[in-house]
Design a binder for these strands. Sequence first.
DNA 1: ACCCGATTCTCATTCATCGAGAGGGATTCA
DNA 2: TGAATCCCTCTCGATGAATGAGAATCGGGT
Lengths: 252, 252
Amino acid sequence: MARVATGESVLSRAVRILAVFGPDERALRVSDIAARTGLHVATASRLVAEMVQLGLLGREDDRRVRVGVRLWELASRASPTLSLREAAMPFLEDLHAVVGHHAQLGVRDGTDVLFVERLSAPGAVVNYTRIAGRLPLHASSSGLVLLAHAPHELQERVLAAPLARFTPHTICTPSRLRRTLADVRRTGHASCPGFIHEQALGVAVPITDGTRAVVAAVSVIVPNDPTDDQATRAVVPALRAAARGISRTLSR
Amino acid sequence: MARVATGESVLSRAVRILAVFGPDERALRVSDIAARTGLHVATASRLVAEMVQLGLLGREDDRRVRVGVRLWELASRASPTLSLREAAMPFLEDLHAVVGHHAQLGVRDGTDVLFVERLSAPGAVVNYTRIAGRLPLHASSSGLVLLAHAPHELQERVLAAPLARFTPHTICTPSRLRRTLADVRRTGHASCPGFIHEQALGVAVPITDGTRAVVAAVSVIVPNDPTDDQATRAVVPALRAAARGISRTLSR
DNA sequence: ACCCGATTCTCATTCATCGAGAGGGATTCA
DNA sequence: TGAATCCCTCTCGATGAATGAGAATCGGGT
C-alpha cells in the first residue's frame, strides 16, 4: 500500500519514539509506542525492531522495550554534559558534604535548565529535580543564573512567554523576572525560596569556562525556613568555592 | 541525481554519525564526518543539519558539531543505566571513601563491559576505564564477573573468539579463561592484577537484582603490588558490602 | 582582495520506507 | 482448557523521503 505523505523524516520519527520514554515509563510495548506517537503499528514495529538492532532500544522479556545501553553510550562518551560532570564531580561531592541535602549541576537547553548531576542525601528535603530532568529557566535558581547570563535575545524570548507557576512564590510576571535577573547579575547568585516546592530553598551560582562565558550552574537545595533569612547567605560561600574549582578545571 | 542503492537505512547512517564522536574527538566538522563514515558530503551535511535540529547533535561556533544535549537527555532519563547508577551512588561513594583510588560500576553489553560510573581520587593509580567506556569481558575484573554469570551461550561465544591481550598478564587462552570463570563463580569475586595495566589491580563482585540475576558489577582499581598477595582479600569485604547495599536498593 | 576548501543548495532520480491486510503468536477470560 | 481477543510481525505494491552530482555560497587563510 502507498505510503502516506507526511513530510516527516525517519529520524524525526525515531526521536519521537525515544521521547515517549521517561522516568515514570521506562518500558513500553510496541502498541503503546504506536499510540503515543501516532505512528502506524506496522511502522512502529519495524522502526522499533531496527532501533533494537542498532542498540538505541533494548527488548525486555515481556514484549516491552526500553531505552538501549548503546544509546546511552553514544550520547555520553563524547557529550559535553559528561565532561562537565567529570570536571565538576569532586567539587560537587565537597559541596554536598558541606551543605547536605541536594547539590546539583545544570546546563541550559533552549528555555530550560537540564540537570546533568544531582547528589542527594537520605532524609534530604523534597526535591523535584531529576538527573536528565528539566525545569523552566525562570522557575529555578539554576535557571535564573543561566538566564541572567544568557544572550539578550533569549532573555526577551523568556520574558515574552507565559511564565509557568509552580507555587504562589514562583516568578510569574515579566517585571518581577527582570528585577530578579538584575539582582542575580549584581549579587552573583540566585535564591529561590519555595519557587518549585514550598519547603525547598534553591540557591545557585554560575560556572564559567576559560573565556568567562557562563556554561553551567551549580546549586544546592536546602530546607526553606521563612523565619531564617540567613540561609542563602550561609551556603553562597561554599557554592562559590565549588564553582571556582569547577571553572578552574574547565579552563585547562 | 539518482540515489545509490546501498540498502542502508537512514537510522543506521545516523547512528554511524554519532559513533564517530568519542572522548578523544568530541567535535568534528561535516567533512570529517563524511570522511569517517563514507557518506557523501552532501548527505552528511543534510543528515547533520537534521540531527542538529532534533538535538541529537549541537553546533559549535567553529563549524564543528558535537553530540547534543537533547540526545543525552533522551538516552539518560529513562535509561536502565541511570537508574542503576542512582541506586548505586551512595554505596559507590562509601566504597570509594574506604578503598580510595577508583570505584566503578559496569554492565554487560554484548561481549564488553560498559562502565556507567567511575569515582576517582586525585593521585589514584592509572586507570584506562572511562565513564561510557568499554573493555572486553575477558580482560577486566568487572567483565569476568559478568561473564561468569552470563548465559552459557555467551560464555562459549567469548571463549571461541580471539582474546585480546593488553599486558603479558591478560588472559588470552580459552583454557585459562574457563578456569578463571570457575574460580570467579566459586569465590564470588574476580581479581585481575596487571590485566589492563601493569600497575593496576582490578577487583570486582557481582550485583544482583530482586530475581538474583546478575545485572552489574562493582569494582575497585588499586595499585598492583606483586609482593602483596593480600591486596585482593583486603578490598573484597568492602566490595561485597557495597554490592549488597546496591542489590537491596534494586530489589525494592 | 583573492584563493581555496568547506558547506549548503538544487534537482532529477530512485530505492528505502510506508501502510493495508493477512497471518501467527501471546494473553486474557470464561 | 479452549475460545476470543489483542498484539506483533511479515509481505508487497506504491511512492515520497532521501540520495548524490554539480553548482552556488560561505568562511578562513594568506
